[in-house]
């Protein structure tokens, strides 16, 4: 059992990844940041719309879309991948809606049924066509972010941009960021009050499907690195942590990026030390950050709550008040 937790070697864990092994772990950390921040930004809107579990659903159901795209085009190009994911994402949304609307099955059950079915089909397809698809079952679940630096490098005009998955993810992050800057108002209003959004000339349905499309693209770009389930944590954890510290959306976005940066650095460190899946370690690191904030946050933290409770608000406030409670007649 002691063999499981390796000795903590400060040089190997804290220094080496960022010096002699930078060409390896630098890309891993960068990929981790790109994935977590892109997911976090999209996830903030999912949480605002109380659709956090749509993230869970879409992340599972892109698998058959991905596999089908690989099989049809027999390539692992970016475009077929995005097309497959978009198709799967839209199909999931429609399937959940129609089960929920056409029968008395409730929405949560409809979500569970739809994504588990699609995911099961995807897993069976990967097993059946293992040779063509090049995705093994473990990769589907938690990805292989450690393989990112081994992918072919993309370079434009002699400048090395990075391995293919990272460049793709960075482009998606950039796109998500630009979309949020461009449509900040519209996204905020349609998440907060669809009726008001419509009266202001924004189409909430369009926004909804746009968000689902962005979700599908983000999830599928992250898929090979972090898998179908860890991505759910990356959608929720940055925003959840940030929203314990601020209530303003713009600030929540910025704090999510901070969370993404810290958790990818800490994740690499943790993964190197414990020699375990780095993607999972990033999620654990992100969860540790969440736990820390949950405890110490000045507004919503457990300590703050405990203190407030100890101050015994009700009686003291009552006695402070000069108007006593009116007597019953």
């Amino acid at each position: 059992m002691n063999a499981m937790i390796p000795a903590f070697d400060p040089h190997a864990v804290l220094v080496a990844p960022w010096t002699e092994n930078l060409s390896l772990f630098g890309w891993i950390a960068a990929m981790g940041f790109a994935v977590t921040s892109a997911c976090g930004l999209v996830g903030n809107y999912l949480m605002l719309r109380r659709m956090a579990l749509m993230g869970d659903a879409v992340s599972h159901s892109v698998l058959p879309g991905l596999v089908a795209a690989f099989l049809v085009t027999s390539s692992r190009g970016t475009l077929p991948m995005f097309a497959g994911a978009l198709a799967a994402g839209v199909f999931t949304t429609i399937a959940i809606e129609s089960i929920h609307k056409l029968t008395r099955v409730k929405q949560d059950a409809a979500i569970g049924i739809t994504f588990s079915t699609l995911f099961a089909i995807g897993v069976v397809m990967t097993s059946l066509y293992a040779a063509q698809v090049d995705l093994d079952a473990d990769c589907v679940l938690y990805g292989e972010i450690a393989f990112v630096p081994l992918e072919p490098m993309v370079s434009v005009g002699g400048v090395v941009l990075g391995p293919v998955p990272f460049v793709r993810m960075a482009a998606v992050l950039l796109m998500v960021g630009l979309l949020i800057v461009a449509f900040y108002k519209e996204l905020l209003v349609s998440a907060f009050d669809p009726g008001l959004a419509r009266s202001l000339g924004t189409n909430p349905t369009l926004m909804h499907y746009g968000l689902m499309a962005a979700l599908s693209v983000v999830v599928v770009s992250a898929f090979e690195s972090v898998g179908a389930i860890l991505v759910v944590a990356m959608l929720i954890l940055p925003g959840a942590t940030a929203s314990l510290l601020s209530t303003r959306l713009s600030r929540v976005h910025l704090l999510s990026l901070v969370h993404a940066a810290i958790s990818s650095w800490l994740g690499v460190t943790l993964g190197v030390w414990l020699d375990c899946s780095i993607a999972a370690a990033m999620v654990v690191a992100g969860a540790l950050l969440f736990a820390l904030v949950w405890i110490v946050s000045p507004s919503e933290g457990l300590i703050a709550r405990w203190r407030r409770r100890r101050r015994a608000v009700l009686p003291s406030a009552l006695s402070d008040d000069s108007n006593p409670v009116p007597e019953a007649k």
């Binding site: 209530t247 919503e300 703050a304 709550r305 407030r308 608000v313 406030a317």
Partner: peptide, 9 residues
């Protein structure tokens, strides 16, 4: 006022 004082935010 109490609610604002006591509730989280």
């Amino acid at each position: 006022a109490l609610g604002a004082h006591g509730a989280s935010r």
